[in-house]
C-alpha cells in the first residue's frame, strides 16, 4: 500500500466535515464538523511528515491541536452564551444580519 492513501483519506474526511458545516444547523454539530476538518488536516500533516522524513509536519499538527483546543474552549463558550440568551443552538436562528 502506498502511504499516499492517508492523504486521500484526509481529503475525504475534510470534505465530509465541510459538508457537515454546510448542512447542519445545530451549532454544536457544526463545531464538531470543524473539528473533523482540523483532524483531517492533522492526518495529512502526519502523512507528509512521514513522506519527507522529518518531524516538522508533526510539529504543525501539534500546534493545530493546541489552536483547536483554544478554539473549542472559546467556541463552546460562545455557544453556551448563545443558548442562554436565545434558548436555541441553531445557527439559523442567529440570522439578524440581514434586512
Amino acid at each position: 500500500m502506498n502511504p499516499v492513501n492517508y492523504l486521500y483519506l484526509a481529503a475525504l474526511l475534510f470534505t465530509i466535515g465541510a459538508a457537515g458545516v454546510l448542512i447542519r444547523r445545530n451549532a454544536i454539530v457544526v463545531f464538531m464538523c470543524v473539528e473533523l476538518m482540523l483532524n483531517a488536516c492533522n492526518l495529512a500533516f502526519v502523512a507528509f511528515s512521514r513522506m519527507h522524513g522529518n518531524l516538522d509536519g508533526q510539529i504543525i499538527a501539534f500546534f493545530t491541536m493546541v489552536v483547536a483546543a483554544a478554539e473549542v474552549v472559546v467556541g463552546l463558550a460562545i455557544i453556551v452564551s448563545l443558548f442562554r440568551s436565545r434558548h436555541s443552538a441553531s445557527v439559523d436562528d442567529a440570522s439578524l444580519m440581514k434586512l
Partner: peptide, 17 residues
C-alpha cells in the same frame, strides 16, 4: 444582491467553500 445577504451563516459558508 441584497437577497444574497440573508443573514444565514451557512449560506455565507457555502459561498466561501
Amino acid at each position: 444582491l441584497r437577497k444574497l445577504q440573508n443573514g444565514y451563516a451557512r449560506s455565507y459558508a457555502v459561498s466561501m467553500f
